[in-house]
Amino acid sequence: MASKETILKLAALISTDGCLTGNPKRLKIRFTNKAESLHKIFVELIKEVTGDKVGIVTFMNKDEVKTTEINSNRLTRFFRWLMTKNKLLPVHILEKSDERTLREVLKLMFSCDGSPVFTLKFDKRKKNLEKGQKNKICFKK
């Protein structure tokens, strides 16, 4: 049985760069991201939850972005139920989580494609960063 922390981390990845899809007979969890390391984490979490019992397929889409697909009706139904159709993180697990778990979940969410967007001011003449400019980290989803 997977820990609540594992399920929350997996939900974080699915809610940011994944989707629950397929027809009613063949449901899938699909994770699409450029970073190889995130795919490895995703697969490890899936194996922790299922005990190595599901089919995992990886391929590149037409934009050469890697996709990892899990063919599991049971797992997809479970996450649909857990996260609701709005792709929310499971609130009851989130509220009971400790700070370490929250940090890990945020690390995963901020590491997914599209977030964060860094807007650093760069001085081309000096070839370094301008001091004291408005640097920020954004989360856009």
Partner: peptide
Amino acid sequence: IDKFSKEIRFVEDVPMS
């Protein structure tokens, strides 16, 4: 940003877009 850098950060080797 300092706290984010010390306590959260990103998964290693995740590239910029």
